[in-house]
Amino acid sequence: MKLICEKNKLQEAISTSQKAITGKSTMPVLEGLYIEAVNNVLTFIGSDIDLSIETKTQAEVIEPGKIVVDNRIFGEIIRKLPNDKVIIETIDGNIIQISCQKSVFNLVHMNADEYPSVPNINENIVFSINQSILKNMIKGTIFATAQDETRPILQGVLFEVNNKNLNLVALDGYRLAVKSQVIDTDNSINVVIPGKTLSEVSKILEENEEKVNITFTENHILFNLGETKIISRLLEGEFIKYSSLLPQEHKLLVTVNRQELLNGIERASLMAKDGNSNLIKLNIEEDNMVITSNSQLGKVREEVSINLQGESLQIAFNSKYLLDVLKIMEDDEVLLELSSSVTPCVIKNKEIDNCKYLVLPVRLVK
């Protein structure tokens, strides 16, 4: 193999494809980056079996070939080279030589034939969606995935297409996040994508109107961004019927400025860091909400102006769960739907009806 490629093109392709490499595999070859050079195209693949990222870039291929190189050291070498053309060629046995200006590296490579093949997905496009919209939907739900491994299905995000609506849903037993978008497809889909996959997809998606094409098989999902393809296995099992968790009615409706509420809870939570509960109390009155927190560190009282429809209420929450939601919402004003001190709080935008968040309260010992 022998090729010439611009350093910045190499670096970008390496950075994208190595996002799939965890370094936790029992197969040493999966700690490497697969590189194939043919017809003036360089293909890079990073994989941990569950997630594979393939990306292509243009290069002058003098001799075609394929190799697997240590992902970490190869990435570091390319990153630290001057901004110029890089020559990569295989020399004796299992060595590649990387040259750029006055720098020359010799690096051991592995046998590309031992690299597991990427799942082959027939790309009958199920639907397309703007990259920026999907990126925003992932950001608006992924924080609510479960972190512990006792219920693996909850470590994923439900990807549901129904009646020309795409819903992304995540829940961890304490909160529920639902983000929705109208899309142009007649397909129905109900699959669960690992949170880790969507986290990496979100990093690769651009904030633009370019489309990402999405295809499913029984066991895998493919995100095609043109030069880059992301293939992930799907989680097995049935996702919780989330719609039954959302209360159909409420007794109180609070309208509040999102930023003022966010700032008040952030300040109150400074005193709530004693222990792991991050406990804050909300005293909801006719036209204001008093936020308090007491701990061994001291106490705090914050007041936020609100509009209340319904009776007054005292309720307590883990402040982290409220902050996670308020930080990613987009409207200036948000609605809080409540019924009692022991039933969930539903948070929505006032204007844009594209999300619902449910947060369980903390029961206070009387």
Rank of each mutant, 00 (worst) to 15 (best):
N130M: 13
S17V: 09
N162F: 11
S132I: 10
I21S: 02
N213V: 04
K56S: 13
I291F: 12
A20K: 09
L335P: 00
N165E: 14
E238L: 06
N106G: 01
E330M: 07
N190T: 12
G156R: 00
I87D: 14
I189K: 13
I129G: 09
V126G: 07
L33S: 07
A146T: 11
N162R: 15
L42P: 10
I221W: 07
K2F: 09
N124R: 09
K366R: 15
K102N: 12
N124G: 10
E302S: 01
S340R: 05
K9I: 00
Q155L: 04
E227D: 15
G173M: 03
V108Q: 12
R363M: 14
G32P: 08
I98T: 02
N349D: 09
E266Q: 07
Q296C: 05
T185S: 15
V182D: 09
K299N: 13
F44V: 08
R175G: 04
L297V: 08
E227R: 08
S305K: 12
E123L: 07
D84M: 13
I291L: 09
I280T: 00
L282G: 05
V346T: 02
D332I: 07
N294D: 14
V108E: 15
Y174W: 11
S17P: 06
L323H: 02
Q259A: 12
M289W: 03
M271L: 13
K7C: 09
S269R: 04
S269T: 03
E286M: 10
F74A: 03
K241D: 15
E351W: 00
